[in-house]
Design a protein around this nucleic acid. Structure first.
Lengths: 113, 113
DNA sequence: CACTGTACTAACCTTTTTGTAAGTATGAAA
DNA sequence: TTTCATACTTACAAAAAGGTTAGTACAGTG
């Protein structure tokens, strides 16, 4: 093995990103927030099989990591809106590549079936 | 909400890709296999904190999903090598975007610290 | 015949993630 | 004063993911 081999230890970009975006729901949420900010109830409609708990829990994590902001309108009944920050928008190329890959992958599946 | 909204239900490209690549290790393994096929022992050196069990388990999953192939040299002591398939190589743009994103993200962190 | 190196398996446990169901707070409207 | 809508919380349970340790197979070597 050569000396320019690239180990993937504690702090490496791949790990950073998977820690930030890992799990079942975060990327789906970010994808839905890309075109416009949304209220939790609207997100729930767009991702029907997420539970209310997971939705809010994941939104909070995304806020904590700075990818999303919460806007509170201070009304009753409560009205809040979540939207992408400028860093949040920067996952879009990544999502685009995920979509590209999935399409390639399914194409391959259809060939070999 | 308009009619062209894009729900993310059961079969959508984002879900396909996260199911294929989700978890702590798969992307790290694929990344290491990109330049050349490797034996498990070599992979283990490049990803020091993966356990042997996880390494083999994840390699098997990657084989099952067609991203990696196992080459058995039929020698004793056993000698096998794992390498990317042609579809396997197609995750590289995705990994590249993950790396781009991580770099942008850490840059942002340094500004706001 | 005991020992070695390599890939892999199995049993078991801990931790993390996800899911379910019920409940809270609030002001306005009926 | 009861009901409503919305965002959110809490307690608990189930499932998935990950980790640790010990073991197996086997031809070659000493």
């Amino acid at each position: 093995m050569k000396s320019k081999e690239l180990k993937v230890t504690a702090r490496c970009p791949i790990r950073t990103t998977t820690e930030l975006l890992g799990g079942k729901w975060k990327l789906l949420i970010l994808f839905q927030l890309a075109p416009q900010g949304l209220r939790p109830s609207q997100l729930k409609k767009l991702i029907p099989d997420i539970s209310e708990k997971m939705l809010i829990q994941e939104l909070k994590k995304l806020c904590d990591s700075g990818l999303v902001v919460r806007k509170n309108y201070g009304e009753v009944p409560p009205r809040v809106e979540y939207e992408l920050t400028s860093i949040g928008h920067k996952i879009m190329p990544l999502i685009k590549e995920m979509r590209n890959f999935a399409i390639e992958y399914e194409k391959e599946l259809n060939i070999n079936k």
